[in-house]
Design a protein around this nucleic acid. Structure first.
Lengths: 219, 219
DNA sequence: CAAAAAATTTAGATTAGTTTAAATTTATTT
DNA sequence: AAATAAATTTAAACTAATCTAAATTTTTTG
């Protein structure tokens, strides 16, 4: 059995390796987990001892098969709870992360499989992230950043690349969430910002940095 | 903020004081929390320091107003989660206690008030125990042990006094749960056991000790 | 009411996770 | 390739929660 903290390390290693396509460094883990590099080193030794990670001094870490299994299960639990919080308890999407962060640590196969069934086996969470199934398999779908579309094209929002509260709150403000339709009416050359029509009703200007963080599919 | 463990102590003190109608002793707490009296003493000092309990060496403990507020909130959360697990996720009642024991420690007013609304503001949990409302008020209802009824009388099961898995599993076996109707057909003088008719269908013999642990209302 | 038993507390040690500061290793730059 | 900077690890110490064993206090009983 791993502790709450150990589990969080595995998840962080998973996410960093996934994003940066290479082994996770001590510093990146410290930043991610809001702790000191010294604490990270300490914990890495413990996790290596438990055969959850491959660790060589000064070389960064990767997950073992078992470590990967556990991290994936945590992500599955986290995302299922997020679906529950948004769809059943009607939370706004910017409020669910911290709660799911706690709920995910409650370990019970039975609980998660029943929750999954109750929610009707969702494949994506409220932020559009893929929910691994009980076997740990992620569903992949075609998606691209809004910034890749041409003027005149329309799309449907699938999710977000950036998960900060500030960003999610901003999307709420301009009434954008998964499912929303966006048509690109004009691209401003100067700063690559976009004039868009949202759900065929509201017009808005979206900065390039926002457009890069919005994942969509063309329609 | 209290730790997970500190919260469990407050809940144990609440339950023991309630059941025994007096201050909780070090030994009873050790028994209840499956730990040693030495650890209990240690923790009691910490909780007294935090003004959660009134504690005098060798004299046992009671909760302060604040300690009582927190314990009541924990019980509220525990019982609401039990309702969720049984009614929404379709768990059997003997399986929900341990899960609720973990879920209750997730602190968020918002989460609990939304869960309460989602469940339609239940007043009692699946074992028939009263769920305190947001103000900490418990709903009281008339109930008596099945053993108090006379031969020939009928009743409806409201809940159980005893929460052990073995007892709950036995009740499942004889198809008894909250809502079940029971008619007392005969009382055996020798051991005070009861011949009963369950939901007008199945006949069964119930020992006196079981009858004392079943809470009912006459109909 | 003194002796024995039961309950409780103290003392000292242990474990998981953390911290700060110093030392070491690796990477970068001239 | 030496000097400097950045990243990482080690060392030593701290906190919360726990334990065992010994000491103390309270309660019970002959």
């Amino acid at each position: 059995m791993l502790s709450y903290t150990e589990e969080n390390y595995l998840k962080a290693i998973f996410k960093i390796s996934e994003k940066e396509k290479k082994s996770a460094s001590t510093n990146s883990l410290a930043r991610h987990l809001d702790t000191t590099p010294a604490s990270v080193t300490d914990m890495l030794k413990r996790l290596a001892e438990k055969e959850m990670i491959h660790y060589e001094r000064y070389k960064g870490v990767t997950l073992t098969a078992e470590g990967n299994r556990i991290a994936t299960s945590l992500i599955r639990r986290h995302r299922l709870w997020e679906v529950f919080l948004v769809e059943k308890l009607r939370f706004d999407w910017e409020h669910v992360h911290d709660l799911a962060e706690e709920l995910e640590h409650i370990y019970s196969e039975e609980l998660i499989s029943r929750l999954d069934a109750f929610l009707n086996y969702p494949k994506f969470d409220p932020h559009g992230d893929s929910i691994p199934n009980a076997e740990g398999k992620f569903t992949i779908r075609n998606q691209m950043p809004l910034s890749d579309l041409m003027t005149g094209q329309s799309c449907q929002v699938l999710g977000v690349k950036e998960h900060s509260n500030a960003f999610l709150r901003y999307l709420n403000q301009i009434k954008v969430k998964p499912g929303t339709q966006i048509k690109i009416e004009e691209r401003i050359e100067f700063d690559a910002s976009l004039r868009v029509l949202i759900d065929q009703k509201e017009r808005s200007t979206i900065s390039d940095s926002v457009a890069q963080s919005l994942l969509v599919k063309r329609i």
